[in-house]
Design a binder for these strands. Structure first.
Lengths: 167, 167
DNA sequence: ACTAATATTCAATTAATTCTGAATGTTCTA
DNA sequence: TAGAACATTCAGAATTAATTGAATATTAGT
């Protein structure tokens, strides 16, 4: 994989990351590590992507929180090195888990809170609408919880759905 | 539903919107319309949420692009009025369709482009990783396309999954 | 315990996004 | 076709988010 292609990939992934709620630097760091086969240290990340060491440090930390990369140590070397999560399937799994936690769960929580606290008696139409929303999100929530508790199960589910149509 | 509860809901929904990539004003306008049972015009939106008429106009336009609200006309009234998409299930459906279009599709496209253009021969490990990513995203893509082409089918699928565990 | 090498934090800066409101466009009525 | 009522656009202002880099912390070797 030559330099130009890696650069192109890094920028494409970076732009895309912005679209789906991961900041640009973090997505670029992720792309860079995806395109490397040996461990990379903080300086290499900062130099290659032309970002500050502080920013690189924060991006690597955040990618680790998402479970997308791993920190490893080389014997006889004090520096921290980073590699991409080796199981690709697991990588997507982590992204879905993280996004559910950040986006979906607060939405459901806020809706439930509203239904519990608000005095909706006066407008049945609105109450019915919000209750229906809660029901749909609850169903989605329990399906996701069941699937995301088990990588193997998720993978089987995806394979199953590939050839399934409800009638 | 009293004023305080509506206000609380609007702000909660607004904050949440930011989390999941819809801007604050747009999410607040959406929340306001969700909590109304009769059609609302642009002035009412701007006044109630303390935003400019220009901003209100853009938010209403964007919500219409997402398919989350409808513009209607009252006979004998020149103003445009807006109501929430009446079918709640359809509302979520629209959100998923729109987010797939904006987030998922460009990701898959950029990955496919890279695989087609890049000279990956030199590093089989990276090539294998990217190909596996493409395969997973392609599978997810075809499942989504099939489901999202048909509201009724989607609904049935959700009901089916509620009680299904792959073994 | 001191020094050197490396990593992290965070206040200040820079960049990106959102919002405003005046200008402009559209549509209806007379 | 002129004017009134309403809607939309978009350049610049205001706000919010991301980034830098100097200060601070951590770790390992001596």
């Amino acid at each position: 994989m030559d330099i130009n292609n890696i650069n192109q990939f890094i920028e494409a992934w970076g732009a895309m990351g912005v679209l789906w709620g991961i900041n640009r630097s973090m997505a670029r760091v992720h792309a860079f590590l995806l395109a490397q086969s040996s461990p990379i240290d903080l300086d290499q990340v900062a130099n290659r992507l032309h970002i500050s060491r502080g920013n690189a440090s924060m991006c690597l930390k955040e990618l680790r929180n998402w479970g997308l990369i791993r920190r490893i140590n080389q014997p006889g070397d004090r520096r921290d090195f980073y590699v991409i999560e080796p199981d690709v399937w697991n990588m997507f799994f982590r992204i879905v888990v993280e996004r559910k936690k950040r986006e979906f769960d607060p939405a459901l929580h806020s809706l439930r809170y509203l239904l519990a606290e608000a005095d909706l008696e006066k407008d049945k139409k609105i109450q019915a609408r919000l209750e229906q929303m809660e029901e749909i999100l609850s169903t989605a929530n329990s399906i996701m919880n069941r699937l995301l508790s088990d990588t193997v199960k998720s993978r089987k589910m995806l394979d199953f759905l590939k050839n399934f149509t409800p009638k």
